[in-house]
Design a protein around this nucleic acid. Structure first.
Lengths: 215, 215
DNA sequence: AATGATCTTGACTGAATGGTCAAGTCTGCT
DNA sequence: AGCAGACTTGACCATTCAGTCAAGATCATT
């Protein structure tokens, strides 16, 4: 068996290693989200995934390296989520899909979103390079698409950046400020409430840029 | 001179004390915003306001107590900002004023906003009581106003909560994610950009809830 | 000027924490 | 079976940090 085949086979050493690393990253994501980088301790992460602390350091050289992996992971989830943005037939469908997808991610990836927010709020000390390269490229490419829509007259003229920020802010708010929302709501949002919130966000934004009723 | 008069007179001991406390809170706000509660150190705060660390502990018993004061301060700034909400003649003016004011606060109170975001993201361990009392009351009172507008037919029917969350999220994003925005913008927003962003946010939201052109 | 209260500060302490290490255990291969 | 490399882990260390303290400086009042 060559190396590549070994690596693919689940249950093998390589597969087990991947599973373990993922379990550690899962635990770390949660702990970092709940305590921030400074407040999180390797011990807490170790406890959460039932491993001795020294074991974490076998897989991840340092706290910072583990943290970087966590941030990278959520960053890539964001990016993939945005693919539906371009592959849609009309601006209405594209935006509605994108917003809906981002709301789903806020629900399913609450902790990752928080870690990302934390990192950016603290000046992105770890992933500044991503902001300057991948995120900038991604943003400008979507901005161009939006400008095309505007030029075609489907969307009212706005600077695409302010629109994108609004979408990011609003959708991520449901993850990052989930605690506040749940306090005001006297409990977690129900399925129906998530749907309603998503519909409302779509409706306000689409209508706000002149797409009401066209979707 | 009785105690009350002493306390009022600036330059007196009481006045100097207030000044110092404010200076410490200013420094703390910045350091907490930049490093999070766990990452902030009393030494860093002391350095920033040029005081020996031991002195901070003379004015504030613990790091947590100092932190609480910081969070309380920004919280009250938020609340005051919202007064213009009710005192306006029409929904358009009220909302436009409120959004504009919140955008200004995101520009002038960037650090406070970040500390607040941090606190809420981590489950509001310190100010949970505020969320459950003051913030809930405030929110429900504004929600009632919005429902009245809806009943009067000025605003399209939406659950007021989703609308408020959208306003909070979008405006605070300009403070909390300032670093990301500035990276994408290749520099701080200019005065003109702030105005444009504010106008765009107002326009999308107002139009989104059926108030376009009425303001 | 004397006095008592308020304020200042360098030095210290105890606890927590990231990271290391060396002595083990397990796994898959021949 | 036996071996080599991968993995596990309890104990340990160096550092950092919140908070303390006691000796001294400063200030308002008489």
């Amino acid at each position: 068996m060559v190396q590549a085949e070994k690596a693919e086979k689940q249950g093998s050493r390589a597969g087990a290693r991947e599973d373990l690393e993922r379990a550690i990253i899962d635990a770390a994501e949660r702990v970092f989200a709940e305590a921030g980088f400074g407040g999180a301790t390797m011990q807490a992460i170790a406890d959460r995934c039932g491993l001795p602390k020294a074991n974490l350091h076998y897989y991840f050289a340092s706290k910072q390296q583990l943290y970087r992996r966590v941030v990278e992971r959520i960053f890539h989830v964001w990016l993939e989520a945005a693919d539906s943005f371009e592959s849609s037939a009309t601006p209405e469908v594209a935006l509605r899909r994108y917003i809906t997808r981002k709301m789903e991610l806020s629900r399913t990836h609450r902790f990752g979103s928080k870690v990302w927010a934390n990192e950016v709020m603290h000046g992105a000390p770890i992933i500044q390079d991503f902001l300057e390269t991948t995120l900038r490229d991604w943003t400008e490419s979507r901005a161009r698409v939006i400008r095309r829509w505007i030029a075609a007259g489907s969307v009212r003229p706005v600077d695409p950046h302010w629109l994108l920020y609004m979408i990011w802010a609003t959708t991520q708010h449901y993850a990052d400020f989930a605690h506040q929302i749940e306090t005001l709501n006297q409990g977690p949002l129900t399925d129906a409430q998530w749907d309603e919130a998503t519909d409302t966000v779509c409706a306000i934004i689409l209508r706000g840029i002149g797409l009401e009723g066209k979707a």
